[in-house]
Simulated assay, not measured.
Amino acid sequence: MDEIETLGAKKLELLEHISALPVREIGAFKHFRARLFRNHTLTQSAMEGMQKAIQRTKDVAYVSAGLNTYGANGKKQHLAVKGSGVLSRRS
């Protein structure tokens, strides 16, 4: 994922460089520039999706490990959850 972020930063530098070119030279890059912007948007969305999926997986693992709560004495306690070992598709 770090490599994708590095490539994204390089791509933005390139876009800034292209945008700074004289008007007579930018014409050749218009189509290429539009593709780069679209690619950047899609890559950003994919990265956000991957981060959300990773967080969701962590959440499922945390919940499946048991329930953390407080007892009558006010101290934290961990209640193990026994399940079937099968995830439901309803979530």
Rank of each mutant, 00 (worst) to 15 (best):
A20D: 09
I18W: 00
V63Q: 15
A80D: 12
V23C: 00
R33K: 13
R89K: 14
I26M: 08
M50E: 14
K58S: 10
R38M: 05
A46W: 11
R35W: 03
G85A: 03
A46C: 08
K75A: 15
K58P: 02
V60C: 04
Q55M: 11
R33H: 10
P22Y: 01
G83K: 02
L36S: 01
V23Y: 01
S91M: 12
A53W: 01
D2Y: 05
N68C: 08
L67S: 06
E13W: 02
G27L: 03
G66P: 03
T69W: 06
L12D: 13
G83D: 04
R24D: 05
A80L: 13
G74Q: 07
T57W: 04
E13N: 14
V60K: 11
S64Y: 05
A9L: 12
I4H: 04
V86H: 09
R24L: 02
L67P: 01
S45Y: 05
T69N: 02
A65E: 09
G66E: 02
I4N: 07
T41M: 08
A53K: 05
R89S: 13
H31K: 14
G71P: 01
E16H: 06
A34P: 00
D59V: 05
Y70K: 15
G49K: 12
Q44E: 14
L21P: 06
T69I: 07
M47P: 05
V60E: 08
H31L: 08
R24N: 02
Q44M: 11
S84E: 04
N39Q: 06
Y70T: 15
T43L: 13
M47H: 07
K58V: 11
A46N: 09
G49Q: 13
A46T: 12
N73S: 15
V60P: 01
R35F: 07
L7W: 13
F37K: 10
R56I: 12
R56N: 13
E16A: 12
S64W: 04
L67T: 14
K10W: 07
S88H: 03
T69D: 06
H40W: 01
K10E: 12
A9D: 09
T57E: 13
G27D: 06
R38I: 09
A53M: 09
G85R: 01
Q77R: 11
S84I: 09
K76G: 05
E48M: 14
I26T: 07
E3C: 00
A80I: 12
K82I: 12
S88M: 07
G74E: 04
T6N: 11
A80W: 01
I18V: 09
A20F: 00
K82P: 04
L21I: 00
A53I: 07
T43P: 03
K30I: 02
K11Y: 10
V63A: 12
I18M: 03
L36E: 03
K75W: 10
A28R: 06
A53D: 09
K52M: 14
D2N: 11
A46K: 13
A53N: 05
E5Q: 13
A72W: 04
Q51N: 15
Q44C: 04
G49A: 10
T41N: 03
I4A: 13
E25F: 03
G66T: 06
V63E: 14
A46F: 14
N39V: 10
E5G: 11
A34C: 01
V60W: 01
A34V: 03
S45K: 14
P22M: 01
F29I: 01
H40E: 10
G83E: 03
L87M: 12
